[in-house]
């Protein structure tokens, strides 16, 4: 059987300004999906940008190169990644005047 885990990194969390998910250890997995469920939006022309980051120590982060397309409305979105080493997180920002997104974020790992 293959090894599998779904980690819920945010639950109905209200995001504004810059954000990053909590560091998550992924050394056993070789493939991953990040899901963002945008549950509610607020503000004028709200825009959510999010990109995948990797790390050697869970403290210092660099962009992996994968990014979500800009998210402007509620809905479900995902990105695929592989060859990411021991840690993963999402970093991003909410733009738009008084912009806010309520989100649930899943990290789905498989080996």
């Amino acid at each position: 059987m293959r090894h599998f885990t779904t980690a819920v990194l945010e639950r109905h969390a209200s995001l504004a300004g810059d954000f990053a998910t909590e560091p998550y250890e992924t050394p056993w997995a070789s493939e991953a999906l990040f899901f963002i469920r945008a549950e509610e939006t607020a503000g004028e022309n709200p825009l959510l940008r999010a990109r995948v980051q990797i790390s050697a120590d869970g403290i210092h982060w660099v962009d992996e190169g994968t990014a979500f397309p800009p998210i402007t409305t509620t809905g479900d979105y995902f990105v695929r990644i592989s060859h990411f080493g021991g840690w993963l997180r999402l970093a991003g920002t909410i733009q738009g005047e008084e912009g806010r997104f309520d989100v649930t974020i899943h990290l789905v790992l498989k080996e």
Partner: peptide, 26 residues
Amino acid sequence: EGFKARESILDKTRWGPTMLSTASFG
């Protein structure tokens, strides 16, 4: 409603994550 938790004085939906770890340090 909305798969939210019961109203509480404490937000219990943000406790930190559990994970398998290799205990790696910089």
